[in-house]
Design a protein around this nucleic acid. Structure first.
Lengths: 129, 129, 129, 129
DNA sequence: GTGGTCTAGACCACT
DNA sequence: GTGGTCTAGACCACA
């Protein structure tokens, strides 16, 4: 079972941190297709946040077809193909990079600095995990 | 004189877009130390937003010691060292990289993909510029 | 919980009086790290000022890394090191002293008079508290 | 003749800096009773500020009975007793000290630190002189 | 309920 | 004409 962590200091909304951690869990293989996620209620208690916060995260992932909620049973990693189309995927990557460089360059960081820093990310854990 | 652009669609607050563009302008040398920025009123008209929105952006940059304002005279790029302390700077870079990789990896992008994409960012313009 | 007071007569902007009182509260130990501040709405009602005025004060302190806010949750005294770098701190002290002596000496007060008066400041409360 | 300097960085309004420097000049004996001050126009040119800024400073000092303007002749240090009544003087000192300590303590400086710093002000020049 | 953003418009302080 | 402060009120994002 994946272990969730929330970090208030990042400024990233709780529901988004949860989404990111689930996505990351899948991408890294820590969450297998078909695996059941904690119930909304259980996770809310564990993370000490409001029920709605967990529900919102699960809901968004459902919309993205990454999770599937079976009435009365629980929430599972969707077995259908989660992968985005290649074109869609590339567009997303572009958009992430763009936002990222906007902020970075405004702080005076050069692209080379960014690349170097990224290369140092061998032993990496996502924000608030 | 720097040219500002606002993009409603990005979801990034107007005042933050202005902040980013000024920071980027300084970092890229398009805004020189001591240079006067447009008046709040003029920029408000040009960008078709409220006076207070511009004032808010200028004010935040003033608190950050990046701008200097003299009532009745105008707003200027601060001539004092804008550079962050090296330790602070590295901390900021780490934090940006961390948020970035969190999101990216959650979409299944690898660090190598990120680095490759970054290397393609030769002719680059920031989001909403 | 700290008690806020606003004094119209001082000519000091409301939002700045709030900032000073929070800073003073922290410096004097009346506000503990992690403690939650009144909600912007509650404080606005209590002090009979507009919501935005409180928000402005909190926002400036957030930019200065003294407060931490999480949307939907509240505003808290930041747990990270609030202390300024020693060099920055000394610079600030110098600047305050400089402004202070400029005004004082212009009224014909000697430095010894100032020091004596300061020594009498045992039981002290800040302006507009 | 006294030499004036304006410093944009202090955030103190120009007209106030001029007032302080004249008051300081008198208090320190650099400006003698009956001595003529530069004309508004001449000082405005010298300091590269607007005529109104100088006029405002002179005007306020006239109201305080520190300067006297003789129509068509010029502005002079008033020969009448400039000294405040002792009670008024003490009140002013209190008020200055109060504002000063409010700001200082909010930055975490102790009164002892302030006193020590003041003691180091042997070779002192007022803000922007 | 929490804070965040924005508008429209007023009035003030400074140059 | 410059920026600064403040209000009243709206709508949004998050918990």
């Amino acid at each position: 079972m994946i272990k969730f962590h929330l970090d208030q200091k990042t400024g990233i909304p709780y529901y988004r941190q949860i989404i990111d951690q689930i996505r990351f869990g899948i991408a890294s293989g820590k969450l297998a297709v078909g695996e059941q996620l904690p119930t909304v209620r259980a996770l809310a208690v564990e993370l000490k946040v409001n029920l709605n916060t967990i529900a919102k995260a699960y809901k968004e992932l459902e919309i993205q077809n990454i999770l599937e909620t079976q009435q009365g049973t629980g929430t599972f990693i969707n077995s259908t193909e989660n992968k985005m189309f290649e074109s869609e995927r590339h567009q997303k990557l572009q958009s992430i990079i763009r936002d990222f460089t906007t902020v970075s360059l405004s702080y005076g960081f050069t692209i080379d600095e960014l690349i170097n820093e990224l290369k140092n990310q061998k032993k990496w854990k996502p924000t608030s995990m």
